Amino acid sequence: MRAETDHLADDRRCELPLDAYSRTVAEAADRVGPAVVRIENRVGPRGGFGSGTILAGDGLILTNSHVVAAARRVRIALSDGTEAEAEVIGNDPDTDLALLRAGLPPGTKAASLGDSKSLRRGHLVVAIGNPLGFESTVTAGVVSALGRSLRGRNGRLIDDVIQTDAALNPGSSGGPLVSATGEVVGVNTAMIGGAQGLCFAISSNTARFALGAFLRHGRVRRAHLGIVAQTVSLPRGIAVAIGAGPRAVRIGAVEAGGPASAGGLRAGDVIISLDGHAIGGADDLSCLLDADCLDRSVVLSVLREGCVEERAVRPRERNL
């Protein structure tokens, strides 16, 4: 009898981790699932479908930029089948994020953004969306890596991307990546075709930044210098002599009347730093030219004809 009791106790102990896992996934899905919508973009010959997350009861919905594309209005369907029209009030291809506003029924469930910086590799995450037309689909996995960079559809790097093995498929884009506590920690955005378990989400902290910009300005404000930037390698001797890294940015061309031209920069100059921050390539320069660089001058250290010079340049807002 004692041996049989011990055997049953061992079986229960083996089942407990699975029960806890299942319970966590189910609770996360139950908490956020009602806030996930299906998005239909009818612009263009084929249109498209995706997912989104209701973040406020007054109708704010977060999704991917590539889901709405050039559309100004899209159709949404709530988890209970209710349909509505939503207006695109912010669209930023550089972060692949967009914000919609729709008139929603009273009592519509909303999700909350969590802090993606609290994530660690191995943390359980749940992806919710409408892949391939299969609505309210839930997949689960772990955080595979943090701080990835992903090349956006417009060629710009998206930083602070979350890598996960929670399965995504076409139609999942724009849906939430949910933590074990039921908070949205990412916006599902991409998968690697032909690979298994390589999926990516824009972090919730990036989403919070874009959300604030959309609500304040209707867009994410960024600066530009009016140059064609080319990433180049510096000869080791020169890099050591001037205290620079192995790579920098060479100016291939200067826009007439642009900020760089007004600041005395010219084609052939090599930018090695901006306001003391080392520039290791064109992506570094793009990341540093954010809204904080607007309405003031920045100091560029440039290598010209073997000498390092400093130039004050006043960036302008970049219009997409």
Score class of each variant (00 low, 15 high):
148 R>L: 06
128 I>K: 00
108 T>C: 04
109 K>V: 15
149 S>R: 13
129 G>V: 01
130 N>W: 06
122 G>Y: 00
131 P>D: 11
113 L>R: 11
111 A>I: 04
107 G>I: 02
159 D>Y: 13
168 L>H: 03
148 R>N: 02
112 S>Q: 12
160 D>C: 05
145 A>E: 09
133 G>H: 02
131 P>R: 14
113 L>S: 07
106 P>H: 04
139 T>Y: 01
101 R>H: 05
165 D>I: 07
152 G>H: 15
107 G>V: 01
118 S>P: 04
136 S>N: 15
151 R>V: 13
149 S>C: 12
136 S>M: 12
133 G>K: 06
126 V>C: 03
125 V>T: 02
131 P>G: 08
113 L>D: 09
120 R>M: 03
120 R>V: 05
134 F>V: 05
166 A>R: 03
131 P>H: 03
131 P>K: 08
111 A>F: 03
125 V>G: 08
109 K>C: 14
117 K>V: 11
149 S>N: 15
108 T>Q: 10
109 K>N: 14
164 T>W: 04
153 R>H: 15
160 D>G: 12
155 G>M: 14
146 L>Y: 05
140 A>P: 10
138 V>S: 13
106 P>M: 07
162 I>M: 12
111 A>P: 05
127 A>Y: 00
151 R>E: 09
124 L>P: 08
133 G>C: 10
133 G>V: 01
119 L>K: 02
138 V>T: 11
108 T>D: 12
166 A>I: 06
138 V>K: 06
131 P>I: 05
135 E>L: 07
126 V>R: 01
135 E>G: 09
122 G>K: 03
113 L>P: 05
117 K>F: 07
120 R>F: 00
105 P>K: 03
139 T>F: 00
141 G>I: 08
103 G>Y: 09
147 G>L: 01
128 I>L: 00
158 I>P: 06
108 T>G: 15
139 T>E: 00
158 I>S: 04
102 A>N: 06
140 A>K: 02
109 K>M: 13
153 R>D: 12
157 L>F: 09
125 V>I: 11
166 A>E: 04
126 V>W: 03
115 D>F: 01
102 A>L: 12
115 D>R: 06
143 V>F: 09
138 V>H: 13
156 R>S: 13
147 G>P: 00
149 S>Y: 13
155 G>K: 14
112 S>I: 08
139 T>S: 01
129 G>W: 01
149 S>H: 11
140 A>V: 03
109 K>L: 13
108 T>R: 10
125 V>D: 03
126 V>M: 00
134 F>G: 06
164 T>Q: 01
102 A>I: 09
115 D>P: 07
127 A>G: 07
124 L>D: 10
136 S>P: 13
168 L>Y: 00
124 L>C: 09
107 G>H: 10
167 A>T: 15
131 P>E: 04
166 A>D: 05
152 G>C: 15
102 A>G: 11
156 R>H: 13
120 R>I: 06
139 T>C: 00
162 I>S: 05
137 T>M: 11
104 L>G: 05
